[in-house]
Amino acid sequence: MKLQQLRYALEVYRHNLNVSEAADALFTSQPGISKQIRLLEEELGIQIFIRSGKRVVSVSQPGMAVLEISERILRDVQNIKNIGSEFTDYDSGSLTIATTHTQARYVLPHIVADFVKRYPKVRLTVKQGSSADIAQMVGNGEADIAIVTEKLDEQPELRKLDCHQWNYAVFVPDSHLLLECRNPLSIEDLASFPLLTYESAFQAGSSVARAFEKAGLDHPEIVLAAADTDVLKTYVRLGLGAGLMAKTAYNAETDKDLQAVDVAHLFEPSPVWIAVRADTYLRGYTYDFIEMFSPKLTREAVDRILYMPIVEDFSI
């Protein structure tokens, strides 16, 4: 059994059982991957993947167990490498951050610029997606840390580092009728206009959904939902409706043709977390990036959260 065989099998699974895509991701050949996986299956005496002809169509029950263990093994191998690198190449390596478009576009630029100046030999990668997508990236090892703005109840293997909070604002052109409404804006007034907002804004349990439910209002008319804040702004400018977006996304220079109406009084603040796997060995520069993003998260504070033993309470 070789680590390479485990990596090949896991990559096929991660690419929705598409061997060609897995081969491209690993910069190798499809026949080579297929051969190594079959050798692994022969050694184990089980089928990891169920095939129909030459196509992989599903994962067997024992195969799923093999893949889960393989993921842990490969993660531990990477942790061992990280420990060695921490002492031999403490200021070089790679760091992959998964985050939302709003964070990547409006919050991270100056932090990333400062980090690159401090660690010029660290290869930094920023991946974007929904909160669910980026949490999954960290969970399966595609990213080292995730900066998320929604709940992570479905990822119990991740530890959350509380950073700060953000509030909503309504973005409208200078001539929009919403600007004629009372000040402060009421949720009834807001509900009377077509809205453009994030795909997750009205998910069950979100601060926006709770606010409308508390007011006894049905969901307003949503003319466009998108993950990209700049896309939402584009259609706000075209007059499709009022944009309900993160207040931090307003840029006084580039958004001179828009006004941002503060609606923090209507919606509860939304938390921002950094999520990491508790079993991941963090490099020194990763600790520094986390502290640059949220100064209260020093290395000592992060270690207390990540590695503090869980105390079971059996009292009744």
Score class of each variant (00 low, 15 high):
residue 6 L to K: 00
residue 6 L to N: 00
residue 8 Y to Q: 05
residue 12 V to R: 00
residue 13 Y to N: 01
residue 16 N to C: 06
residue 19 V to I: 14
residue 25 A to H: 12
residue 26 L to A: 07
residue 27 F to Y: 15
residue 31 P to E: 11
residue 32 G to N: 12
residue 33 I to E: 00
residue 35 K to A: 08
residue 39 L to T: 04
residue 39 L to Y: 07
residue 41 E to F: 01
residue 43 E to D: 15
residue 47 Q to P: 00
residue 56 V to K: 00
residue 64 M to Y: 07
residue 72 R to S: 10
residue 74 L to S: 06
residue 81 K to N: 14
residue 81 K to V: 12
residue 82 N to H: 12
residue 83 I to S: 12
residue 84 G to N: 13
residue 87 F to K: 14
residue 87 F to D: 09
residue 89 D to R: 12
residue 100 T to L: 08
residue 103 Q to E: 13
residue 103 Q to S: 11
residue 110 H to M: 10
residue 110 H to C: 08
residue 112 V to R: 10
residue 112 V to M: 07
residue 118 R to I: 03
residue 119 Y to Q: 07
residue 126 V to S: 09
residue 131 S to V: 02
residue 137 M to L: 14
residue 142 E to Y: 10
residue 145 I to N: 03
residue 147 I to A: 02
residue 149 T to P: 00
residue 149 T to W: 00
residue 159 R to W: 00
residue 160 K to D: 06
residue 162 D to R: 13
residue 163 C to E: 05
residue 163 C to G: 06
residue 164 H to W: 09
residue 169 A to F: 03
residue 169 A to L: 03
residue 175 S to R: 11
residue 177 L to K: 15
residue 178 L to N: 04
residue 181 C to P: 01
residue 191 A to D: 11
residue 191 A to G: 12
residue 191 A to C: 10
residue 193 F to K: 06
residue 198 Y to H: 15
residue 199 E to G: 14
residue 203 Q to A: 10
residue 204 A to P: 00
residue 208 V to L: 02
residue 209 A to Q: 13
residue 210 R to T: 11
residue 210 R to D: 13
residue 211 A to K: 02
residue 213 E to F: 06
residue 215 A to I: 10
residue 216 G to V: 02
residue 224 L to H: 11
residue 226 A to R: 05
residue 227 A to I: 02
residue 235 Y to M: 06
residue 237 R to P: 01
residue 238 L to S: 15
residue 239 G to V: 09
residue 239 G to K: 05
residue 241 G to F: 01
residue 254 T to R: 11
residue 255 D to N: 08
residue 259 Q to C: 10
residue 261 V to S: 02
residue 262 D to A: 08
residue 265 H to T: 10
residue 269 P to M: 05
residue 271 P to G: 08
residue 271 P to E: 04
residue 273 W to T: 03
residue 273 W to R: 01
residue 282 L to W: 03
residue 285 Y to C: 03
residue 285 Y to V: 04
residue 291 E to H: 10
residue 291 E to A: 09
residue 298 T to V: 06
residue 305 I to A: 10
residue 306 L to I: 15
residue 308 M to T: 14
residue 309 P to A: 08
residue 311 V to T: 15
residue 312 E to R: 14
residue 312 E to M: 09
residue 313 D to F: 08
residue 315 S to G: 14
